[in-house]
Design a binder for these strands. Structure first.
Lengths: 160, 160
DNA sequence: TATTGTTATACTCTATAACTATA
DNA sequence: TATAGTTATAGAGTATAACAATA
């Protein structure tokens, strides 16, 4: 006669696990994103930058005289939300809005010397922080990680 | 005599790139997370589930009689926010709140038959969708991706 | 008719403070 | 004194609609 199977319930102290979820990329990437995002947000705080303002500044530095609409598309935010971001950077005199030559609707963005300097400092810190993440994986793994993230991102984006 | 270097500006049509940002894990993971998250949210819509309600349901199914506080810690959300999530699942009769034996403060969560069924169906769809992502990377790359994400997540979490 | 920049607005997600009832 | 569940609330982040100016 078979003994009754006793289902193990969740008492305090019992190990509770998200085993099913951990098999899914969506869940793993969310968990990793949350901690990285919090970590980098903290890192940028002394510079008075948020992740989005840093991203915007970085792209402006790399692409002098970029239009706001181009910037919005590049960093994947809807254009109404970019206004406050550029306002913030402009108020701190890190970037300038100038009339776009040849299109009187548009305005082009250019980083000031102070903006370029701040961006450089922040970027240096970010790279250093990233190196700390990389310490937990090999160089090969890091490369695969980057390539796989982009491949997945593109495979989904291209569908719609 | 050297010709004056003409800086290429951002005209409409010019390729604008986030090259500096793309060297950073934080940026790549954010971009990938956004598209995956949107994709999976769409997938769960027909089930009447959001990503977080699906996560909660999945952990409850896997851990019968888990306490709310344990669940909150497991899926990394602060406990006040779990209340509405469990309310939602309970209203739809996917889970039940029961008094916790031995601790009259606590309540334990158990999935109903309907909850288990819905979770199973949703999980099957999620796994199928994940397989589509996996098609853009090799099996080896997928494994490295998962391991690297967890390694990075843990390397940051352990610091604080 | 479409696009650029803008304002206003709403909705989701996440975080904190504070309460109650128990331990 | 600390913990479990709860309520209320506030702050990010993100999305849509609608407008003026211009293409």
């Amino acid at each position: 006669m078979a003994a009754a199977v006793r289902v193990k319930l969740a008492e305090p102290g019992r190990v509770v696990a998200d085993l099913t979820l951990r098999k899914m990329l969506g869940y793993n990437i969310k968990r990793a994103y949350i901690v990285i995002q919090a970590d980098l947000t903290r890192l940028l705080e002394p510079f008075g930058l948020r992740l989005v303002t840093f991203s915007a500044l970085s792209v402006i530095v790399d692409n002098p005289d970029i239009q706001q609409s181009q910037l919005a598309r590049t960093i994947a935010i809807v254009h109404p939300n970019l206004v406050a971001i550029v306002d913030e950077l402009e108020t701190r005199q890190l970037v300038e809005r100038r009339p776009a030559p040849g299109d009187r609707r548009a305005r082009v963005l250019r980083a000031t010397a102070a903006g370029r300097r701040l961006c450089e400092q922040a970027t240096r810190q970010m790279i250093r922080r990233e190196a700390a993440y990389a310490a937990s994986v090999t160089a090969d793994q890091r490369e695969v990680l980057f390539d796989a993230l982009k491949a997945v991102e593109n495979s989904i984006s291209e569908e719609r």
